[in-house]
């Protein structure tokens, strides 16, 4: 049984949340569950695809803290109670796509019925990321197991390893402090375009889709050159593309989905092509049938 996306939410940072990826993910998770009439106790699996943690925390994963905050079965297990399993997936601005694929594996294997994917970007605070370049935002997807066709298809990926030359985020000593630094160089968009177009071609071949069969292409990160390049290489009409807002990072694949939905670009039966790329360089593509 395939995975369908039943709920979705994107939140932006306010004074209370702009320096806390955890609080942004909490707010997005709660809003997404509320939107589809769900509650935290139904969440069997919680996957966080955000990279930036408050104070650059490395352990535990952020997902258990979010699980506790939103009240998704946080207590000791009781006999017969399945509880909630939480962990983080990291794949830069393509992490949500990896998380969707991981969730689909759990759903199709019958291991879980409801999963919550969250991602958020925020300055870790305490002066630990001078010049942090991304806008504070959080996003969440509620994924459920559903009978019938449609839902999340098989993802295809393309890696073009460059050792992080074009994009990297590190935490290391600078001027006597351990700080987070994001380095991006010109040319990153070209490399992403190359990897993304290979992934898109593979998934269109798998799904036996012609360029005209794709109703909407959701592209992240929101780099204008990436959209232009993909339209040229794939032959899909430029007006079918929706790009994530610039300045969003791990949350971009959720934000672009939400933006397309709000513009009424996604209706039952719509064939959606999700494309997400990230540092490495890596890019993935998957078809979602609404």
């Amino acid at each position: 049984m395939p995975t369908t996306i039943d709920g979705m939410a994107v939140v932006t940072g306010g004074w209370h949340t702009r320096r806390s990826a955890r609080r942004l993910a909490d707010a997005a998770g709660r809003a997404a569950l509320q939107e589809c009439g769900g509650g935290a106790p139904e969440v069997d699996l919680l996957v966080n695809a955000g990279l930036y943690h408050d104070r650059n925390m490395g352990e535990p994963a952020l997902a258990p803290l979010i699980q506790e905050d939103i009240g998704a079965n946080p207590s000791d297990p009781y006999p017969g109670g399945a509880g909630t399993f939480s962990f983080d997936v990291a794949n830069g601005s393509a992490g949500v796509l990896s998380a969707l694929q991981v969730v689909d594996g759990f759903v199709r294997a019958g291991t879980v019925a409801t999963a919550l994917i969250v991602a958020s970007d925020a300055d870790p605070g305490h002066g630990l990321a001078p010049g942090f370049p991304f806008s504070p935002a959080g996003g969440a997807l509620v994924c459920r197991r559903r009978d019938g066709p449609g839902g999340v298809g098989r993802a295809r990926w393309c890696n073009r390893p460059d050792g992080g030359d074009s994009f990297r985020t590190t935490v290391g000593m600078r001027s006597g402090r351990n700080v987070l630094v994001v380095d991006r160089v010109p040319g990153y968009a070209d490399r992403l375009t190359d990897a993304s177009s290979v992934a898109v071609a593979a998934v269109m071949e798998d799904e036996e889709l012609a360029a005209g069969d794709v109703d909407v292409v959701l592209v992240s990160p929101g780099l204008p050159e990436l959209v232009t390049g993909l339209a040229a290489r794939t032959g899909i009409a430029a007006d079918r593309f929706v790009a994530a807002a610039e300045g969003l990072h791990t949350v971009a694949p959720i934000a672009v989905f939400d933006a397309a939905r709000r513009r009424n670009r996604i209706a039952p039966g719509t064939t959606v092509l999700l494309v997400a790329g990230g540092a490495g360089v890596t890019a993935g593509a998957v078809v979602y049938r609404a």
């Binding site: 997936v89 992080g164 490495g280």
Partner: peptide, 27 residues
Amino acid sequence: QWLEPPTSMAVAEAVGATRAMTFDVSN
């Protein structure tokens, strides 16, 4: 500490896993 690109990609490259999909898990 490298948050991105994922470490999996560097390992895959080092062992010749050229067609492997890569991502990291933190738990």
